[in-house]
């Protein structure tokens, strides 16, 4: 066996049998194809592990800037440490910004013809999008892990117990999951990566006008409800509550029911944007 392998390696390459494997049904291949599209993203990160820092750069700089520079001037309703207040906000911001990554990858793949190549192959068409979604969730999990480790190092803590803590991270990933479809849809609608980069102009104010940095109760009366009803705020407030971090409360109904809303918002976003993204994907052939 070993000698045979060595011999073929030195001789001219033996032609490979190219009959595709047709032993399994469509569902099997939909899963395998999805996994191979995921592998593509993971291999990219394995070759360039530092790429993940591009995503984490913003929250880490924010923690340093707001947590240490402005931190002493920031107020937390009901008292409490500002850095502990800020961390759940940073987790959610990272999830929210992640959709830019989805959009950029999709728009680049479409522009470079990678999506066309996939679509011209006998693979499951669904794998192009499901693979993107699973890959993004795995990357988001890695981001959260690194960020949580950083947070622990600077004194953040979860006092909520294991189930509540896991639920909080689950809600963060649920937010990211819903935004994948917004990202895919944007990636299919926008003309190029530069345009996708301009999405910062949308997502950045959206994270500012939320409970990420400042509790809505401390904002001007006209702005407070906007910030409170921001889907990002619901996830932030819910995770603060679950982690037992300060500043979770708030007077309005949406703040009182943050955990519920941290489910409702992402599911609503998914309900709208998943079909939109699928329709847009199918429209590639029109």
């Amino acid at each position: 066996m070993t000698t045979a392998t060595t011999m073929t390696a030195t001789a001219a390459p033996t032609p490979v049998d190219l009959t595709p494997d047709t032993r399994h049904g469509r569902a099997y291949w939909a899963v395998v194809d999805c996994w191979n599209v995921v592998r593509r993203t993971l291999l990219n990160y394995r070759r360039q592990p530092l790429a993940i820092l591009w995503v984490l750069g913003f929250p880490i700089v924010s923690v340093l800037l707001y947590g240490f520079v402005f931190g002493s001037a920031m107020r937390v309703p009901g008292g409490g440490d500002y850095r502990e207040f800020l961390m759940p906000g940073m987790f959610a911001t990272t999830m929210a910004f992640g959709f830019m990554n989805t959009a950029t990858t999709v728009v680049t793949d479409v522009g470079k013809g990678v999506v066309d190549r996939f679509r011209s192959m006998p693979m499951a068409p669904s794998a192009v999008t499901t693979g993107r979604g699973v890959a993004d969730l795995l990357v988001a999990t890695a981001e959260l892990t690194i960020l949580a480790a950083t947070a622990l190092a600077i004194g953040w803590n979860s006092d909520g117990g294991l189930p509540a803590t896991l639920l909080a991270f689950g809600l963060l990933l649920l937010l990211r999951f819903s935004l994948i479809w917004v990202g895919v849809w944007c990636g299919l609608v926008l003309p190029n990566a530069e345009a996708a980069g301009a999405l910062y102009a949308v997502i950045f104010p959206l994270t500012m006008v939320s409970s990420v940095y400042v509790a809505p109760s401390l904002m001007p009366a006209w702005l407070a409800p906007v910030a409170a009803w921001n889907p990002i705020s619901s996830t932030v407030t819910a995770t603060r509550e679950l982690f037992g971090n300060p500043g979770a409360g708030g007077g309005s109904w949406v703040e009182q029911n943050a955990v519920l809303m941290a489910f409702v918002w992402p599911l609503a976003i998914t309900a709208v944007f998943l079909p939109l993204a699928v329709r847009r994907f199918q429209a590639l052939s029109r």
Binding site: D21, T22, W29, R39, F118, M121, A127
Partner: peptide, 9 residues
């Protein structure tokens, strides 16, 4: 990657 997506294993 493309070989796997062509179901070659």
């Amino acid at each position: 990657l493309f070989g796997r997506l062509f179901h070659l294993g």
